[in-house]
């Protein structure tokens, strides 16, 4: 059916600098994905990098998805958004600026407040890994104007 084993991911950068909040688990997981999933070298100094991945924003939001007939929340929608830029450090974008928006649904019950907290954390971690894989995919596309 035409499927073949995936080859080594190649990013069109020999060196890459990831510019984002060092405290962010997303940034750390992205670094890991680049380090273990490609031949690209991560550098600690943006001036040594051929490309800079800038994490412009990372937001989490929780919105009401469904209510019971009595006006209580039955389900929440968890939203996770990563906004990024890929540029050369000299003001030129190497990719269109982009966003990755993900959502998950979680049932809710006011009596299960604490239990739901750890479940939400699990879903955010799941979305975070998903977003890392999606951004990693996008980084594999050849650079603009090259």
């Amino acid at each position: 059916c035409g499927f073949h084993l995936r080859g080594q991911a190649t990013l069109p950068f020999e060196t890459l600098y990831i510019d984002g909040n060092r405290d962010s688990p997303f940034v750390n997981e992205l670094k890991r994905a680049v380090r273990s999933g490609s031949a690209t070298k991560l550098v600690d100094n943006p001036s040594e990098a051929q490309g800079i991945v800038q994490i412009v924003g990372e937001t989490r939001q929780k919105v009401i998805l469904t209510l019971s007939g009595g006006g209580r929340v039955r389900e929440y929608k968890l939203l996770y958004n990563i906004a990024y830029r890929v540029h050369d450090g000299k003001g030129k974008d190497l990719r269109p600026q982009g966003e990755i928006s993900l959502k998950r649904e979680v049932s809710y019950d006011d009596t299960q407040l604490l239990a739901k907290e750890s479940e939400e954390a699990l879903l955010y971690r799941d979305m975070q890994s998903d977003a890392v894989q999606q951004l990693f995919r996008r980084l594999q596309v050849p650079k603009l104007n090259q």
Binding site: S107, A115, K116, S118, E119, L122, L123, D126
Partner: peptide, 20 residues
């Protein structure tokens, strides 16, 4: 602080079917 987790794709790959 425990509860039964929703059954979903994140949950089926986790170590515990309970949260908390």
């Amino acid at each position: 602080d425990s509860g039964i987790a929703d059954f979903n794709f994140a949950q089926i790959f986790s170590e515990n079917q309970f949260t908390g």
